[in-house]
Design a protein around this nucleic acid. Structure first.
Length: 703
DNA sequence: CGCATGTGGATTTTT
DNA sequence: TCCACATGCG
């Protein structure tokens, strides 16, 4: 039997979870304990052994990435699966959206099936327009999103009194009405409305299976509850030690809540297959919850703790270290650097670029971040929904793309449907009739004559054109995959692009590309690497200096970081952190790790001198990027010199040339000496411009 | 406009 | 904790 082969690969804990028959079961899955494997085995087991159709299962995840991984692994293990059988598999939002679009009577809420999913920014735009048009008195508009969120959460009429004595509750009501009028739902509306409609229209799936259940917020828990009927069984997997998003609404008690709400059986997956036992033992110091982590691997390397002078020095050191590791045969993609704050990546990016180390930085990028695509999406949205006036107004009145008219003029033309005044508007109106048979993406491009509207003279022209073509290609691919007529597929894509189009243009950090991965500790969740460097373990940074309420979460965050490492873990702290409010010296988290697990690496005296030297230079000079780059050179050259002593060429004293000294550099070729003193030398290279070196390490050959 | 007062954000980010 | 910014009064 198909599933028996699957079961053989599991350990006893995993097997118990897969075979469990309780009405509700919560699995406390430790880090690296094969959580996803269990989830997939469970689905396969239910399908083959218990004869449950995939259509009777709802499988919920938090990210599209996780949903795709599950679907891919399922299809890989069972090629008879049709994609349409897996419509109940996806993120909470995408499953809720699917239900709203296909089964639930959205008309009861005065929406139509064509409703559009909008991003938070668009809701804000609508709110701002309402304030303007209705002349509402709203204070603190700079925090309108937070204020709306807070005001929306108040349900009791008698509590709806603005603490600032303004019209915030009036706005909440008008906004709700306006969204219905424009047929738009935000991300939270999708869940909220699904929850309301599920009161009366039961789906009754046979199984609900949830991944990373510890990240659920109130709406999501509510969604689970509304989906679940008397005959529905629940299987949830999660790890309370990995709650790092409580600021986003998830709470530590989710496991507890579910356990009590459904009288769930509690199981655990204690065995970690990922990390060496030294790393696991360190991780245990930060574990707050549940069963002890059981290791399955050898002792491995000690954890290296390093003191670095400052972030810049560390970047140089890491560049060197990574080269060394890579030369020893480790692929770049097995190496990752974690930090607490986004902006800490900058130094690494600069130095790695200079050192030609391939790297990728984990960064969110949505369609909205690319202005031209934001514009194209709005344009297509109006084509597909000709009632969406606000999109059309945006298209005509955008400052950079389209007709670039004033908002007032655009509104007038759109309201009057005056297609004589705007060729672009005419094209949008006729799109539906004239483009029903499109098969290639460039046909769309040609139809709209985008070249005319994206300012061929602008510096961004080429980039913009490329972005549009990529987007159109993705749309065509989507339509083809869904096997729908072009216009239906397009409408489908456009109406939910806020939900799915998001990561489309950006390669995921976990892609197979062989590069060093740079990311925040938060972004590291769910990933694993052979070599992990956690940088800036200073008090004030890790844990981050905040109101100390969230200290425990910082500890869990550090736990997540440590447990990403398979073989090698290095922690570092700065003597001189370049960040405000960050103390120098190691965080107490380093003291929490038993000394016997640690290998303390003292920075060589020589390096300290270099660092001191660099500091002096930086302080003496007016600050600027040029110096920094030159110093990068100096340090690199110094490191190179260390590796290859024979290549070292001493600075020739008392060279005979009276006026112009010529020098040669390994990388930059020949150049003229501009300035020279005891410590520094400034050279103008023929092809690289002016560079500055620390003389002692410069590796310059005097001609 | 200037100044006093009040308010909450800082940091992480998915859908 | 401290700082930035919105508000509102004179």
């Amino acid at each position: 039997m198909h599933y028996e082969k699957e079961l053989k690969r599991l350990n006893e804990y995993q097997k118990e979870a897969v075979l469990d028959e309780s009405d509700a079961c919560i699995v406390n899955a430790n880090v690296g304990s094969g959580k996803t494997t269990v989830l997939i085995s469970k689905i396969i087991y239910l399908h083959y052994a218990k004869d449950i159709s995939y259509k009777d299962m709802i499988v919920l995840t938090f990210t599209n990435k996780a949903a795709n991984e599950i679907k891919e692994r399922l299809i890989a293990s069972d090629d008879s699966i049709q994609l349409e059988e897996l419509e109940g598999f996806g993120t909470f939002h995408s499953v809720a959206l699917h239900l709203l679009k296909s089964i639930l009577p959205v008309e009861k809420m005065e929406y139509t099936k064509d409703f559009v999913v909008i991003e938070p920014e668009e809701e804000l735009d609508i709110a701002m327009r309402i304030i303007q048009e209705e002349k509402l008195k709203i204070k603190y508009k700079n925090r309108l999103i937070k204020r709306l969120e807070q005001a929306t959460s108040i349900e009791k009429e008698e509590e709806k009194i603005s603490r600032y004595d303004d019209d915030i509750f009036k706005l909440v009501q008008l906004l709700k009405e306006e969204k219905i009028k424009q047929n738009k739902m935000t991300f939270s509306d999708i869940l909220k409305n699904a929850n309301i409609l599920l009161e009366d229209y039961k789906i009754e799936p046979k199984w609900i299976i949830i991944d990373e259940v510890q990240d659920s917020d109130k709406l999501q828990l509510d969604f689970i509850d509304k989906l679940k009927s008397m005959n529905t069984k629940l299987f949830a997997v999660g790890d309370p030690n990995q709650v790092i998003y409580s600021w986003r609404g998830s709470s530590l008690n989710v496991v507890y809540t579910l356990k009590h709400r459904y009288n769930a059986r509690e199981l655990s997956l204690p065995i970690n297959y990922r990390s060496s036992s030294s790393i696991l033992e360190a991780a245990r110091c930060f574990q707050q919850n549940g069963d002890n982590l059981i290791g399955a691997r050898e002792t491995g390397n000690k954890i290296v703790v390093k003191n670095q002078y400052n972030p810049f020095n560390e970047a140089c050191y890491l560049a060197d270290k990574i080269k060394e590791i890579h030369n020893a045969g480790v692929p770049y993609k097995e190496i990752a650097i974690f930090y607490r704050l986004q902006n800490q990546s900058q130094v690494f990016e600069d130095v790695f670029l200079k050192n030609e180390i391939p790297f990728e930085v984990s960064m969110k990028k949505t369609i909205r971040d690319i202005p031209v695509l934001n514009w194209v999406i709005k344009l297509l949205r109006f084509c597909v929904n000709p009632n969406d006036f606000s999109s059309a107004i945006y298209v005509l009145s955008n400052k950079d793309y389209g007709d670039r008219m004033t908002e007032k003029a655009a509104r007038k033309i759109v309201k009057e449907q005056n297609i004589i005044k705007s060729e672009l508007l005419e094209k949008m109106y006729n799109f539906f009739n004239e483009c029903s048979n499109i098969t290639k993406s460039d046909e769309i491009y040609t139809y709209f004559e985008f070249d005319k509207y994206i300012r061929p003279t602008a510096a961004t022209y080429k980039e913009d054109k490329e972005s549009i073509c990529t987007l159109l290609d993705i749309i065509m691919e989507y339509v083809k995959e869904k096997q729908m007529p072009f216009l239906n597929g397009l409408r489908n894509f456009i109406n939910s692009s806020a939900l799915y189009g998001v990561n489309i243009l950006h390669k995921d950090i976990s892609s197979d590309e062989d590069s060093v991965k740079l990311m925040t500790l938060h972004a590291s969740k769910g990933l694993e690497f052979s070599y992990v460097f956690i940088t800036g373990v200073n008090y004030g940074l890790i844990p981050l200096h905040t109101r100390d309420m969230e200290e425990e979460e910082e500890q869990r965050l550090f736990f997540v970081g440590i447990t990403r490492a398979k073989d090698y873990l290095e922690l570092s702290y700065y003597t001189n952190p370049d960040y405000q409010r960050v103390a120098s010296g190691e965080s107490r988290y380093i003291y929490m790790i038993p000394q016997k697990l640690i290998q303390n690496d003292k920075v060589k005296n020589e390096s300290v001198n270099l660092q001191e030297l660099k500091k002096q230079i930086q302080e003496a000079k007016t600050q600027g990027k040029k110096e920094e780059i030159a110093v990068v050179e100096a340090v690199n050259n110094k490191e190179e010199a260390e590796v290859d002593k024979s290549a070292e060429i001493p600075v020739v004293e008392g060279a005979n040339q009276a006026s112009i000294k010529k020098v040669r550099h390994k990388k930059y070729g020949t150049g003229k000496v501009l300035k020279e003193d005891d410590m520094m030398i400034e050279v103008e290279f023929e092809n690289y411009g002016v560079k500055e070196f620390i003389k002692a390490f410069s590796e310059l050959e005097f001609l």
